[in-house]
Every structure is written in C-alpha cells, then in structure tokens.
Design a protein around this nucleic acid. Structure first.
Lengths: 138, 138
DNA sequence: TTACATGCAAACTGTTTGCAAATAT
DNA sequence: ATATTTGCAAACAGTTTGCATGTAA
C-alpha cells in the first residue's frame, strides 16, 4: 500500500477528469505519469504493474487505459501491428514506427508539417492527422 | 456491367509475380483488379467472392491477400480500427479514415507533402510514411 | 508425379463484456 | 447507502496455422 495524500496530486488529476481515484487507477497513473513520455500497450502496463507487486487485472488495465484516453489523459496510437499503444504525450505530434520490434517513438521535433491536403469531402471535416514514419534498418 | 472475362492476362500477372494462378486466386484477382482502386478487408473480399458464387474459404482469402501484398500487387493499410485493409493502389499515397464506418479512402491528390522530418535515428532510415487523415462529421 | 494450394477447424492475439464481490464517496 | 469499480472467465473479432485432401505444373 502507498501513501494516500503525500505524492503528486495524481488523485486530483483523476478526479478533475471525472475519474474516481481507486487504488488500481492510482497505481496505473503512477506508472504512466511519472514524468517522461511513454508509449505502452495494455500488456506492457499490466506487466509493469505486476513487477511493482500491484495485482491489477488485465481487464482493469484495458478499462483504465480507455477511460484515461477518453478523458484526454492519454492518446491512442494505431500502429501497423494490431496492438494499440497508449501515449502519455497528448499534444499534437507524430511517430516513428520500428517494424523490427513493433515499437513506436515520438517524433519530438515539432516542426513537421503536412501540406497540399485537399479539402475534406462532403459534410466532413479533418479531425486529426496521424503520421507514421516507418524506420527500417540500414 | 460486370462482364469481365479473363481476357486480360491476369494469370500472367500472377505468374510474373511468382504466384501460381489457381482458380481461387484468379477469382480473387478478378474481383480485386477490375480496374478501379479498391480497399477491401479479408471479410469483404470473402463476401464478394461468395456473392459471385465462388466458394473460397476465408483462410484462402487471407493467404491470398498476404501473398499478393508480399508480391507488391497490393498494399496493406493499417487503420485505427484493428482491421487490415488491402489497397489495390500500390503507388505512394495517403488515406482518409472515416471513424464512423471504419472505412478508408485514397487521397488521390498527389500533392501532399511532409516537411520538417528530423533525421532518422542511429542506424535506421525512413522506409515509408503513412498519413491517415481522420474525417469526422461536421 | 510432386510440390504446392485449398478448406476446414482449431489455435491464437488483442480486446471487450457480464456478473458477483469489493470499494469509493 | 449506493453507485461505481474490480476481477475473473468467457466472449469476441481478426488473423494464422496444422493437416488431410485436392490440384497445377
């Protein structure tokens, strides 16, 4: 068991997003929001939690990741492999994809721009643009 | 107007790619390469084949789509939903994604450019760039 | 003839869900 | 008190695979 009110205001963060700060969700939030930008799959986060000796079920990890995403605390990244990555960096940015190990990396350089997009068709508008740059070994 | 006999050298096309032109593969090739650009999932192509009264198993559809892709006759497109789309347009282009129905569309306008990409990290080089433009209802 | 392709079903991966028991407010 | 959350297992979608049969060359 951890301290209740000592650490960073993680429970506030969750509460402010309308998410009830349960023990499991705080555990996962701690692992996710410890500062650095992270990309995790549900499996990876599940394993992380277990190696921190916090028994959170995989279903709860999935539920929590989806809730955090819906609340804007995470961003889902679709990759060419069929696994969803959850990115703690919710700002507008793009990704490298490494087919060799199915991993993704932020493109931290914010100067990437996309030009020449045609207008969105009939009754639609552009919502988000995902750029995935495949990196292969040379 | 789907009077399409195997007049054009579909079997040649397959053979040239090192793929043995079996009845099933020719059926699928006919459905795929009838001229227009197409994006199909394995399920969709399977359904197409069946409504053309050609009993091809789903496993064979998958196998065939993968082979065609490996041979460069198709291009796999990863979407934010967990389904693989196979695109008959193998040239360099990008896609719209419609979250409402999980469909994708080519961005036919060839003038889309991406600028400001940083150099690829350590021992890697940029292989392919996928751009997915999410279209939402307005 | 013989290596390769097919179909089926079963395995498999990633994800979601139903429900009883546990917990936050 | 009570509405929500959890965990498990089972359901689920999409995809792959093992193996006996069938087929192209």
């Amino acid at each position: 068991m951890q301290q209740h009110f000592a650490g960073p205001p993680l429970s506030e963060k969750l509460r402010n997003s309308g998410i009830r700060p349960t023990r499991q969700r705080l555990t996962l939030a701690e692992l996710l929001f410890d500062g650095g930008d992270k990309h995790v799959t549900a499996e990876q986060l599940h394993a992380l939690a277990h190696s921190a000796r916090e028994n959170v079920s995989l279903a709860t990890v999935y539920n929590t990741l989806k809730q955090f995403s819906a609340a804007g605390l995470l961003r889902e990244v679709a990759t060419p492999c069929q696994t969803i990555y959850f990115d703690t960096n919710t700002s507008d940015h793009h990704h490298y994809f490494l087919p060799s190990d199915g991993e993704i990396l932020d493109i931290t350089d914010a100067s990437v721009t996309i030009d020449g997009l045609p207008d969105a068709p009939h009754g639609k508008r552009v919502g988000r643009i995902d750029v995935i740059v495949h990196l292969v070994d040379e």
